[in-house]
Design a protein around this nucleic acid. Structure first.
Lengths: 247, 247
DNA sequence: AAGTGGTCTAGACCACCTG
DNA sequence: AGGTGGTCTAGACCACTTA
């Protein structure tokens, strides 16, 4: 009712639906609803917040547009997840030049715990003494190496991450992050360059030293714009490309 | 249970706001409202189409989300354009590693009319006998060459395009396309690779032959998903990168 | 002051999914 | 059958811009 909406005429400068959106984001961040789960129906949320269904709807619309929620008509609204077949590799823009994109295979090279170099520590918001995990891995398309990844994670957030867990897990790595560590990646920034293959990368990717490679540096964030992963991928683009849509 | 085959087929129904959206897109395509101009107010459109304002509003919302329209509170809704300071270089994702992005300078290398190679003709939807225009140019950041562009246009759409017009025009090339040829680019697909600089590119970009370059192949479309431009840019990424946001 | 987009409501009905 | 999201309406009021 109008009375309820006007009951608190405190100097809130943002529209009601924005405030609702903020409340929903807080619930997501707090883990009230986990990735893959349904959230309460629009009607129930409207009652809970004492606003009309249309206002809740607009808040959910924006969260769905940001890929934080997924609407499914007749079923409900769900928390987005990286651990489902439909959304697998949501962040991977690499595409084969021809043919349907067969799923890439993973091969873990190593997983070490160490002090992060200063640039990586600062990107991840790590204090001077804190440790980081470094993973390195290959992605292969039918036995042909295509991507060499160098991945840095803040060790405090990933306690108990082992080589075995990584190797044993099926599905995208960000799915593992969700289920094992409660870390849901919601957005990422990428910086893309062309670089010449160094000796080590060249070997992993079966390329001559100095071959041109696509360098994709990705910083991924969880709720609250907190950086959780810094990844540098080297892509071999002879038979694949990075696709992007502009509008 | 009712036989599924007898159940209401009705496959052609689309929501009202989608039909309104289609009508608005047709008016945009037909040039009823030109880039940069205001379109009629929501109330007027609602009256014209005999629907409620909310329905028009939802149609416009989607077109605004696709960057085809721009809403300005208190002023009206405007047709998106590439010819304004605020939207300049809407499609250019190249960013300097440090510092604010000073505007890049352009230097036209040449402009020729010729028969397009088969791959380019097919990408642009050109018939076997039709001609294409090939432009080549450099983009420079404070006298340092950063981008070498190789641009192909269907000649029939760009009658009267001359070197003088190109060199004389201030502002983004897509602004020229709008004002001179009535062609408004609304979306583009890019394929990105790392390649080794050939002899010619190396010279233009002041790089050694074989230096790694970012190859950005862009196919741009106007209304009706009609391809209008095929562009291959080679980016020198020592001090710049291609930025992308994932969600 | 008038006109525009922006927000919010309440209620109706539809389309879809599940038990 | 009942619940969910999806559409549509009509009307009220607010916030911003321009004249």
């Amino acid at each position: 009712m109008v009375d309820a909406a006007l009951a608190d005429p405190a100097p809130l400068f943002s529209p009601l639906y924005q405030q609702i959106k903020t409340l929903l984001m807080r619930s997501l961040q707090a883990g009230d609803w986990k990735p893959g789960e349904v959230i309460p129906s629009e009607i129930e949320l409207a009652a809970r917040f004492k606003v009309s269904q249309g206002t809740v709807r607009k808040a959910i619309d924006e969260l769905a547009a940001e890929n934080r929620l997924v609407r499914r008509q007749g079923r409900g609204t769900f928390v987005a997840t990286h651990a489902e077949a439909t959304t697998r590799y949501r962040f991977l823009r690499l595409t084969p030049d021809a043919g349907a994109g067969a799923t890439l295979q993973r091969r873990l090279i190593d997983c070490r715990r160490m002090r992060a170099p200063p640039d990586i520590a600062s990107a991840l918001g790590l204090g001077p003494g804190e440790a980081a995990l470094q993973l390195r891995r290959l992605l292969l398309d039918e036995e042909r190496p295509v991507v060499f990844d160098d991945i840095w994670l803040p060790a405090p957030l990933f306690k108990g991450l082992t080589t075995e867990k990584l190797s044993g897990y099926r599905g995208p790595m960000y799915g593992l992050f969700e289920t094992e560590f409660g870390l849901h990646m919601i957005r990422a920034e990428e910086k893309i360059r062309a670089v010449a293959a160094g000796a080590e990368e060249a070997q992993w990717l079966a390329q001559p030293e100095g071959a041109p490679l696509l360098s994709v540096e990705r910083l991924s964030f969880t709720y609250g714009d907190k950086p959780v992963e810094l990844r540098r991928g080297l892509y071999q683009t002879d038979h694949h490309h990075y696709r992007n849509e502009l509008s």
